[in-house]
Simulated scan of single mutants.
Amino acid sequence: MARGKPIYEGKAKILYEGPEPGTLIQFFKDDATAFNNQKHAVLEGKGVLNNRISEFVMQELERVGVPTHFIRRLNMREQLIRHVEIIPLEVVVRNVAAGSIAKRLGISEGDALPRSIVEFYYKDDALGDPLVAEDHITAFNWASPQEIDDMMAYALRVNDFLSGLFAAVGIRLIDFKLEFGRQYEGDMMRVILADEISPDSCRLWDVQTKESMDKDRFRKDLGGVVEGYREVARRLGIIRDDTERSDTSGPVLVASNGEPTT
């Protein structure tokens, strides 16, 4: 499918005009960034894994009633998505103390929180994506009270579903980031899930070893970043180790029916 002109390039993705009105093509890059782009590397294969993991998760969320911008995967690095007006907020759901909340509140990393906590951050790289309260959001008209309610409800539903999905394959969902957008259909508007859900946007720990399987491997110079992402994909059944293959190129990406794909 032919892309249109690029309309936005972020740290890990590029958005192109889509083939039909109301659509975009989302391209997953191999770039890895941390600390507001102060740390940067290109990790071969990361974009392919994020594309496939996000495809799988978005499809599963649609099945449980969470509306998303995902339409279909086009190839190993591209998705066809709905064009939405991005709400300038990052919605973070936390189940376990890690990262900034541990530092801000003096909680030991790895401690379970009393309950899942939803936080909002204003999307502005120049400001370092600051933590904001609901009063800030409504005062500056970043989102309406109804949109805040919708985002929180969807975020908690996503948390419940993903916690079970990952727990079933021996992974603990520590926290994750979501983004939402406004989709307009005539005079109607609804809030839907946008961006991606992948090890770039989630903290994922092995249940037994507590080993990180996400972008913290890059942030903390632990090495094995792509290997961690690949293990997440393998456990979810997105890739498999094909022992019948004669070459040594590693795991094979598979389709939803379990057959190898290209």
Rank of each mutant, 00 (worst) to 15 (best):
Q183R: 14
I53A: 05
V93R: 02
R63D: 03
N51I: 01
H40P: 01
P6D: 11
K123H: 00
L222M: 15
A153V: 08
G106K: 10
S198F: 04
E78V: 10
N37F: 01
A102Q: 08
F120D: 02
M76N: 13
D221L: 09
V64L: 07
G237S: 10
I71A: 07
F70R: 04
V92R: 01
S212P: 02
N36M: 03
D31R: 10
I107L: 15
S256Q: 08
G186P: 05
I117K: 08
A2M: 13
P6A: 14
L15P: 04
E44H: 05
A126F: 00
Y8M: 06
D30N: 15
Y16K: 11
T261L: 07
V66W: 03
P130K: 00
V226I: 14
E109Q: 14
E60N: 15
E134N: 07
R52E: 03
K210E: 14
I174R: 03
T248G: 08
F166Q: 06
H83V: 01
Q208F: 06
E17W: 06
M213G: 01
G22M: 04
E227H: 11
G22W: 05
R104L: 10
M152P: 00
P145I: 02
E85V: 10
W205Y: 14
V118F: 02
V42C: 06
I71N: 11
V48Q: 05
F140V: 03
